[in-house]
Design a protein around this nucleic acid. Structure first.
Length: 681
DNA sequence: ACGGCTTCCACT
DNA sequence: TAGTGGAAG
């Protein structure tokens, strides 16, 4: 899974911001009398007091751990305050925490590119902001800076026990510092300010790590909690990683980490240094091997994605042991609950963010009481997503039945034959911003034309029908049957506004009929992401081919850690495209502003000059054709690049000179005179 | 047969 | 593409 993304001499300024015991804070804001008390959030308290999902730092001191039961927590910490997660439709409802997370994201996105990494974590790329600050902020003003930044922990200092504010102040203002450390210092100021804003506006505290890449930033954010920030200075990287238990590294907490320990005797990150890149590649494949080699040295080129919103929504519940669902009726009942929640969240996403989801997926866990030996898994199934709780539910039930048949094998009436469902979940994915504005409407009709003229569309009568949305029609779901009325979107369950639902329909139409991706712009952009990456491919050193025979996993353990991941996916290149899609990369203030701005950009033709060649290729199943775009690097007009936002200019130029680390050269030389060795001015 | 629920990613 | 599995929190 980890992937090689080598990056040498990386001068980005990356922050990882992590909310402190977030769910607890959300509850404490709701009930301020809980502040300062040992507190934990539990879900479902009937069985052994419920499971803890967040624990305050006061309670942690007493040894309370997440994943204790409420009862155990009471034992080690009798005064603990247990707050229950809200329950809706018979299941835990995390929406208040999600909403609180959005509050935070919208604040943290004010400076630099922001990536929502989870409900309570974000990454920030503050490179540009830090550089600007380094250029424009006279050193004197740093002396009057707020206390918060002085509470930073600077790793190279704290290892010597010199963590006091005076030392930190001195470190932050060192004039002979490495340029990269100066940028880090600027990043620390920016992050401190952001954290204060978060506190002021949400009452939530958070901790942060400031470093040159995501991996180190993430590592650092957890080192001094709560409500503190940690800077990984250039000089501290080696000392930080060397003694670090390998399992503490993100991505190595699981089987890969275990394999490193067991198979290679690697217990700390430092131990990894003894292995050549080739050796690691022999064991784990080219990509993972290179990735390991790099992270051991503190290198990680992973980009901060400009994404403020989740990529999918899901709603699920487990039915452990005795509570397993044994009848179709019971499954249907719970699917209804889950689908209602999902639908609500989809509606909200639609209204707030103008996005629609395209795929509905059903997951289930099941057992057969008959043969305990067969460890067959209940297959997950998906289909096009139709809006409206009732439709989602109907489709989910169909998916379930298809899965169940497959799970049980041909025969059986699928009723009371000794099966049980221990887990159910529905999720919505492939979420894209809705096109809006006149040009999109034009494309809408254009797209429609394609739908009808497009070759295949076979036999089906539904092409011309009013509501071509039913997933039941999709040939991949023989299980389903279309009984529904043509009566389109809504009815009682889907109060969708007209314009929106029509867009929704058209998207689904285009998709269902498999006649090309729905908007011109979206398909251009997403396919462009692939073609744009070509110039960069050679950045990945894919040297020695993996010899599968030498893979040394325990036979039942790790199979393959992605030795064949292609170099064609370059996150760096996609952010420009994302910018064109959503304009969320840099300074956008609010989530829901993105979709709107997106279309302005798109329809203003900004993307055109970037797109040098257009070609179409046959689509997969239907012989449909999809437009895609590519360009030749040397054909890009410089003036086009200059029109882009600064942080993207950088990126584009990087593609154009794939061999160089544009970053270091450019940044280093142009602003080296700031923070001069002696007091400036 | 309980750690519940959610999200993301890579691979095939 | 759809479906699977790992990882994280």
């Amino acid at each position: 899974m980890p992937v090689a993304r080598p990056e040498s001499s990386d001068s980005r300024i990356i922050a990882h911001v992590d909310m402190d015991c977030f769910y607890v804070q959300v509850e404490q804001r709701k009930q301020p009398h809980l502040r300062g008390l040992p507190t934990a959030v539990v879900q479902y308290n009937s069985w052994k007091g419920g499971g803890l999902i967040a624990v305050s730092y006061e309670a942690r001191k007493d040894g309370v751990k997440r994943s204790m039961r409420g009862d155990e927590a009471k034992k080690v910490c009798p005064q603990i305050q247990l707050v229950q997660v809200p329950v809706a439709r018979g299941k835990a409802d995390l929406s208040i925490y999600r909403n609180a997370g959005s509050e935070v994201v919208s604040i943290l996105a004010r400076k630099g590119r922001c990536e929502r990494a989870s409900i309570d974590e974000v990454y920030l790329d503050l490179t540009d902001a830090a550089e600007t600050m380094l250029k424009e902020t006279p050193v004197e003003s740093l002396e009057s800076i707020d206390e918060e930044v002085l509470k930073s922990h600077v790793l190279e200092l704290s290892s010597n026990g010199n963590d006091d504010k005076e030392s930190v102040r001195e470190w932050l203002q060192r004039r002979d510092a490495d340029h990269r450390d100066k940028l880090l210092a600027c990043g620390a100021f920016i992050v401190a300010e952001l954290r204060l804003q978060v506190l002021r506006e949400t009452e939530f505290t958070c901790s942060a790590g400031i470093a040159h890449n995501k991996m180190l930033a993430k590592l650092a954010s957890g080192m001094n909690k709560p409500a503190q920030q940690t800077i990984v200075s250039f000089a501290s990287v080696k000392g930080l990683l060397e003694p670090l238990p390998i399992k503490k590294m993100k991505q190595l907490g699981g089987k890969l980490g275990s394999s490193l320990q067991i198979d290679l005797g690697v217990n700390t990150v430092g131990d990894l240094l003894q292995f050549s890149e080739e050796k690691l590649q022999d064991f784990y494949g080219v990509n993972t091997g290179t990735w390991l080699w790099n992270i051991a040295r503190g290198n990680s080129g992973e980009e901060v994605e400009g994404r403020l919103l989740p990529k999918s929504h899901g709603s699920g519940k487990t039915f452990p042991g005795p509570r397993a669902l044994k009848t179709l009726a019971a499954v249907e009942k719970w699917l209804k609950e889950l689908c209602e929640e999902l639908s609500e969240r989809l509606q909200s996403d639609l209204e707030k963010n103008k996005r629609v989801a395209h795929t509905l997926t059903l997951h289930a866990n099941a057992y057969k009481s008959t043969d305990t030996d067969s460890h067959k898994k209940f297959p997950s199934k998906s289909c096009p997503l139709r809006y409206g709780a009732g439709k989602i539910q109907e489709d989910a039930v169909n998916l379930f039945q298809a899965g169940l048949r497959e799970y049980l094998g041909a025969y059986t009436g699928s009723q009371c034959c000794g099966w049980g469902i221990t887990g159910l979940s529905v999720s919505a994915s492939k979420i894209v911003a809705i096109p809006s504005g006149t040009s999109s409407i034009t494309r809408y009709f254009h797209c429609r034309d394609q739908v009808h003229s497009s070759s295949e569309l076979s036999d089906e009568k539904f092409v011309l029908e009013d509501d071509p949305l039913s997933p039941s029609r999709s040939e991949s779901h023989p299980a389903s049957h279309q009984t529904e009325q043509q009566n389109e979107s809504g009815g009682e369950e889907a109060p969708v506004t007209h314009d929106i639902s029509s867009f929704d329909r058209y998207e689904n139409a285009c998709k269902d009929e498999a006649s090309g991706d729905f908007t011109g712009e979206i398909s251009h952009l997403s396919s462009g992401a692939e073609s744009c990456s070509t110039p960069k491919q050679n950045e990945l050193q894919l040297r020695s081919p993996v010899k599968e025979s030498k893979m040394k996993y325990p036979s039942d353990g790790i199979r393959s850690y992605g030795q064949k991941r292609k170099a064609t996916k370059e996150k760096g290149t996609s952010s420009i495209l994302r910018f064109l899609q959503s304009n969320s990369c840099s300074s956008s203030k609010q989530d829901n502003a993105n979709a709107l701005q997106e279309t302005k950009l798109l329809s203003s033709g900004v993307q055109e000059p970037l797109v040098m060649e257009s070609e179409s290729f046959p689509g997969s199943q239907n012989g449909r054709s999809t437009n895609t775009w590519s360009y030749k690097a040397n054909e890009i007009d410089q003036s086009v690049v200059e029109e882009l936002p600064p942080e993207l200019q950088e990126e584009v130029r990087t593609w154009l000179r794939p061999q160089k680390r544009a970053n270091t050269v450019k940044r280093g030389s142009s602003i080296a005179h700031y923070f001069p060795p002696s007091k400036n001015e």
